[in-house]
Write a protein that binds this DNA or RNA. Sequence first.
DNA 1: ATTTAGTTTAGAATTATTATAAATTAACAA
DNA 2: TTGTTAATTTATAATAATTCTAAACTAAAT
Lengths: 142, 142
Amino acid sequence: MLKNSEFVSKLRNSGLRPTKQRLKICEVLFNRDKTFHFTINDLAKNISENFNEKISLATIYNTIHAFKDKGYLKEITISSDKSYFDTNITKHHHFYDEDTNLLIDCNDNEIGKVNIKNNITGKKISSVEVLVRVASDTQNQN
Amino acid sequence: MLKNSEFVSKLRNSGLRPTKQRLKICEVLFNRDKTFHFTINDLAKNISENFNEKISLATIYNTIHAFKDKGYLKEITISSDKSYFDTNITKHHHFYDEDTNLLIDCNDNEIGKVNIKNNITGKKISSVEVLVRVASDTQNQN
DNA sequence: ATTTAGTTTAGAATTATTATAAATTAACAA
DNA sequence: TTGTTAATTTATAATAATTCTAAACTAAAT
Ligand SMILES: [Mn+2]
Ligand SMILES: [Mn+2]
Ligand SMILES: [Zn+2]
Ligand SMILES: [Zn+2]
């Protein structure tokens, strides 16, 4: 639940000019109570259907990637034909409902800490992510 | 290290005709000591460069998807612009080296069992996969 | 006000993947 | 064998997500 002026400084502080388009995208993504997951297409549709502004698809891609690079979004890869973004930038894991194609955040109390006993020599761990795929009982198993 | 005749029965047993193309792909994928990870492009290149047979890209896609559906391959999604396949069909986790773009299998002794305390109501867990991204110490963290 | 560099945009290009539909081939029965 | 049938392969077109390009626009600095 941030105000417009807060987005302006947030953008300025990260070296991004607070343009009309970026502020609108900030509002859509960050001016709400709960974090959520979306695809570029979801976002483009949301903006064109629910607001008067027209933001070109190229700008949406540019902005989302800029926000990701600045750490304001995380990218979640579930399938190779679609990329999800997450406004929850804390470390967390996901359930993926194969029936509805929805991503659901795991709380820390739902999945215990992942115990990595041996890392690759000379490398540093940059992230650890668990994906739990779920489906109705009557579905095929993986 | 399977023989050609074994691939013939394996294919027949799963309702797939043992065509010349499928047998060649079996040989390339399964006639070796260790499991490995590959992309469709890797495989197409491998076949066209190291063998005389020309298999059309459409057939490679068809075959890999058929093998995946029959459970002879697993698909691993790391990034949205490329899909990896895995000849190791046992339950296991992965390291992904962001410097080299290589996938590395985790042994059971490297990552402890993931403890899922609460599943989504009414759903069945179809898979649990951990992806540990690693990079050189001098790289950016996630 | 002028300049400059950053940003937006429409549209083209790229790339992975899937669809189409005709030619080929494996399986099967006569 | 031989003919029939359905599965498979293939070249090619289509699709769809994403990136690129280059011109127009705009925020920031002078
Ligand atoms: Mn794709
Ligand atoms: Mn893609
Ligand atoms: Zn999330
Ligand atoms: Zn593997």
